[in-house]
């Protein structure tokens, strides 16, 4: 049998290499590399023979050798990449990672629920065009009562049991309504004001606190109507409690408004079907409101024949109690961190 030429052997090797199966693991990969490309590997031995090959065969043999070496190197590199990726993927698939471990929470504090609800309500009204005004918490009888059409020696004053200072003729305001008088005197008409703040009444049980918070709102312009009051409150309530909430106005009495109204909201707990919170009436009493009384305008030198306005006021604690399901008002002022941390 005649010995094969170098070219023939290279061609054989090329065919053999082309049909090599891809290595299954790193050991096989290394074995292939050593077998063909190692110092004593097939390709290395053949390239040593190149020196003694006939001159006219050299270009063809050289080209073949390059092809074989290049093909092998490519195949081995692809195998290496594939094996590495398989190895990483396998490790990832098999690892245990405990996503149930508690997250590491940064130390945040919180707003007090009353303050948060107050800001929420103020935002709704400022969004509607009311501007914030604040007034002092210690007031004179004039701003708290007289200027708001509470005559001296009138039973209407019994509605608000008042704290008095002992060393000066002052009282702790019983409502945010004095801001009405102050703002009227400060700006004159027209005006649209929302007044949040602390108020005080001599009363303490699970739904009454001697100190609590109110928001007062009012507007004065030419031809403000009772319908405007209703529409404004309807919009406010729907923004606060959602578009399905309804309001109901009932005649009531507050000396500084007339006609005066108690405003009920369809129960936010049961949706109006009746439950324990709404005493099975389907309605919750949330606000007092009405058209600003002419005497209040006169006291602030505004002509009630030319101007009209509406005013409304609400207690924040009641709204917050309904919102968060708090049934004892004292929780808000105890400031127990176990309570405050829930917000």
């Amino acid at each position: 049998m005649a010995a094969q030429t170098l070219i023939e052997r290279l061609q054989g090797l090329k065919a053999q290499v082309a049909s090599l199966p891809s290595p299954a693991d790193e050991r096989e990969l290394e074995a292939l590399r050593v077998k063909y490309l190692g110092k004593k590997g097939t390709v290395s031995l053949l390239s040593q023979e190149m020196a003694s090959a006939p001159k006219d065969e050299k270009p063809v043999a050289g080209k073949l050798l390059q092809e074989v070496r290049g093909g092998l190197e490519t195949m081995l590199e692809q195998a290496r990449v594939r094996l590495t990726r398989e190895k990483i993927q396998k490790e990832i698939e098999q690892e245990f990672f405990d996503i149930s471990l508690p997250g590491s929470e940064p130390e945040f504090g919180a707003r007090h629920p009353i303050a948060a609800v107050m800001d929420e309500i103020v935002d709704i009204f400022t969004g509607m065009g009311f501007q914030v005004e604040e007034g002092p918490e210690v007031e004179s009888d004039y701003y708290n009562f007289e200027g708001l059409n509470f005559p001296a020696e009138h039973p209407a004053r019994d509605m608000q049991d008042t704290f008095h200072l002992t060393n000066i003729e002052r009282l702790l305001r019983t409502h945010t309504s004095p801001v009405q008088v102050r703002a009227m005197q400060k700006y004159g008409p027209p005006l649209s004001v929302i007044a949040p703040g602390k108020v005080y009444r001599c009363d303490a049980d699970i739904t009454h606190s001697p100190m609590f918070h109110q928001i007062e709102g009012f507007t004065i312009d030419k031809k403000i109507t009772m319908g405007d009051l209703k529409g404004t409150l309807q919009t406010f309530i729907q923004r606060l409690y959602g578009p399905k909430t309804a309001i109901r106005l009932r005649p009531s009495f507050f000396p500084f408004v007339e006609p005066g109204a108690e405003v009920d909201v369809s129960c936010v707990i049961c949706g109006g079907k009746g439950c324990r919170v709404c005493k099975h009436t389907g309605w919750l009493e949330i606000l007092g409101a009405g058209m600003i009384h002419p005497n209040v305008m006169r006291a602030s030198k505004i002509d009630p024949a030319q101007w009209s306005g509406f005013a409304f006021g609400m207690g924040i604690e009641r709204i917050a109690m309904l919102k968060y399901g708090v049934d004892d008002i004292r929780l808000f002022f105890e400031n127990d961190l176990r309570f405050l941390r829930q917000f």
Partner: peptide, 25 residues
């Protein structure tokens, strides 16, 4: 009947830019 009054939305009048809300903010 209060319930028979239709609700309307006023175009709220603006007084001069109030400063009362600054501290609140």
């Amino acid at each position: 009947g209060f319930t028979n009054i239709p609700g309307t939305l006023p175009r709220l009048a603006q007084h001069q830019v109030g400063t009362g809300g600054d501290m609140y903010a």
